[in-house]
Write a protein that binds this DNA or RNA. Structure first.
Lengths: 383, 383
DNA sequence: ATGAAAGCGCTAACAT
DNA sequence: ATGTTAGCGCTTTCAT
């Protein structure tokens, strides 16, 4: 069995009281150099590893941060884990996961598990549907929680991206290029991001006095397969669109797949722009014109905010809503030649309704190694 | 502050002893219908959530599985998390993460954290370098551990992929197509996967009586940027290769990037094959000929094995080594026309040295929605 | 079928 | 500067 060497063992070996061992381990009170050394030696010799669960029982904190999201499907999953590791390492936090599978019932189960494990705080990307049960619970238990990605409830801190204007910019650009029949492959129902992106699409149409046709908006359910199917519906219309907007990364993959199968070339036969950059967007031909989310930054802000809340639970203060801007990345799938200036002035955002704090624009370099000069896409920061 | 409603509170409210509450919660001994109901009601009314950390202190198990790997860089990260969630949910396991950043010192830190949190078991993808310290520790503490991806030590269970023959097959295919100068962009030094893939490359060369030239093997360090640089070295040779093998997914991205920048077309100017399939391999032009790892299956096997070990720590038995076959996916980047039969008979594997168990071949469909008939790549199972 | 009591390994008063 | 002691919230003998 596993090392049952306890603090008492160490104390005995060092010839001191258990509390002394505790204090040298935690530096919680001065210990004479001699005893400290004796204790350190004893620890070394016995291979003692402090038992954090026993510690947690008395201090009633676990230094555990719970993450609730659909692991595979949510693009914030890995960045959040990384942020907790990076930021949290300094403060001794670790992360525990709970997959919600994007269904409220699993979400409830997930939150309960985390609650019973007494996590110090939770980062949650709310599943679509009625999440009142989970959220009420979280409020009742008063466990520090920050919502991420999808907005769901004014009682919580939230960090996410600006969707309305960013999507509108995508559409404005297409309109500036002369398109009037623009299809939208939209996301899962019940997600704020889905609704906001649809709203952005309609906004741009309105501005240009183009009629909104419901049949041009097809449900891609936020994933590739359904998106490919939804695309079919669009293409089978008597008057297919001349341009398509895909509302998230996974759906973009489905759309590309579908277009390819039908032998429809981008952008010659069909212009395509998308919400979310893809890791491999640069490698596709044509390269995709997209709005990129500052994913890493969102994750980092969320974790920082959470840790701050945990640190002073009392100084609660007003809930923070951090809505970060997306970045318009102009490449060629919209139909523009490589390096062309951006058609259709990208309007500056006017500040979301619940925007309480303006964040700095994301740094241009998004990490994935520099591109050669002429190959560089035009990056337009949006705020 | 957080719900401090304890088992004692519930007991008082229900007018029973704490032990009775415990037994109805855990079903550990019969409780009369009346009392059981009273307890259940009290729990309901108080919103009691059992404190798992207190429980852990007495039972000395946490139902926590630790995951140690380079979160962002390791392709097994998300699949392992998913597997723990899927398999573990039935048994009440959750996962705690620790990012090793692929450096032994962080790895030591990570393992220590998990040890102090008293996880019931660990899934570890060993960092490159001298991991004796970590592994000795794990052995000493006798915490059930399964190694994944990179093989490191005979004292542990291990689950990973067959590399030698799979890589050889890639090279054999190129040779069959007439290539004699074949470059290899290889992975990080100190990783078993790197060494095995180089060995496979050499094996195929030997079989064909082609000379092995060290300068045709360049260090891509398992990531995109370095791979792109390494590619440069290959291309700047007086006699550049006519075909390239990329030894993992991230490096393939770098290689593609580099080739594109130099205006080198695949496969016309340069044939390209790779270890690891890419999520978007189907979307590239040309589509990539690769060996795909059964990632999800590896993760699932690892987690199942670990949970089994945890269940009966004593019945230790011999260490298991599960080496799963890769799948040759024949597409067009090798220079073959779409749907062409596979040139260069792909030799069946001969069983790795430490192969103790033969696993079934991965099911052909790899999840990402069916391809249209004529577009379907030729998939050749390897064992 | 139920209750009382001991104790898991630690921290944090409270002594001295 | 160090030791003693009383819990943290639970499980699990041991009684009854």
């Amino acid at each position: 069995m596993r090392s049952p060497v306890t603090m008492a063992d160490v104390a005995r070996r060092a010839g001191v009281a258990a509390s002394t061992v505790s204090h040298v381990v935690n530096g919680t009170r001065p210990v004479s150099a001699v005893l400290r050394q004796r204790v350190l030696d004893a620890i070394e010799e016995t291979g003692y590893v402090p038992n954090r669960v026993a510690r947690s029982l008395v201090t009633s904190d676990t230094h555990l941060i719970g993450i609730v999201m659909s692991a595979l499907t949510n693009r914030f999953f890995v960045p959040v884990v990384s942020a907790i590791d990076r930021v949290g390492r300094r403060h001794g936090y670790s992360s525990v996961l709970a997959d919600s599978r994007d269904r409220v019932d699993s979400e409830v189960e997930a939150v309960n598990t985390l609650l019973s494990r007494r996590v110090d705080g939770i980062v949650l990307a709310p599943a679509p549907g009625d999440r009142r049960q989970v959220l009420d619970r979280l409020v009742a238990e008063e466990v520090p929680t920050v919502l991420i990605d999808r907005w769901a409830d004014g009682r919580f801190d939230w960090v996410g991206v600006e969707n309305v204007d960013a999507t509108a910019n995508l559409v404005r650009h297409l309109i500036a290029l002369g398109h009037t029949r623009i299809g939208l492959v939209s996301g899962m129902r019940g997600l704020s991001t889905t609704e906001e992106r649809v709203a952005g699409y309609r906004l741009a149409l309105d501005e240009a006095n183009l009629a909104y046709s419901p049949s041009l908006v097809v449900p891609g359910k936020s994933s590739a397969g359904p998106a490919e199917q939804a695309l079919g519906a669009l293409l089978d219309r008597p008057q297919p669109p001349t341009a398509i907007v895909s509302a998230n990364n996974y759906m973009t993959i489905g759309v590309l797949q579908g277009l390819r199968k039908r032998g429809i070339r981008v952008p010659d036969d069909m212009a395509l722009v998308a919400y979310d950059d893809l890791d491999f967007a640069e490698l596709l031909q044509p390269r995709l014109t997209v709005v990129a989310q500052p994913v890493a930054q969102i994750a980092t802000e969320a974790v920082n905010l959470l840790i701050k809340r945990i640190a002073n639970r009392d100084l609660a203060g007003p809930r923070q809503v951090i809505r970060l801007p997306g970045t318009f990345v102009h490449r060629e799938s919209c139909g523009c030649p490589s390096g062309a200036p951006l058609a259709g002035s990208v309007k500056p955002a006017e500040g979301g309704p619940s925007q309480e704090r303006k964040a700095r624009a994301e740094a241009p370099g998004r990490g994935r190694g520099g591109l050669a000069g002429s190959d560089k896409p035009t990056v337009v920061g949006m705020s």
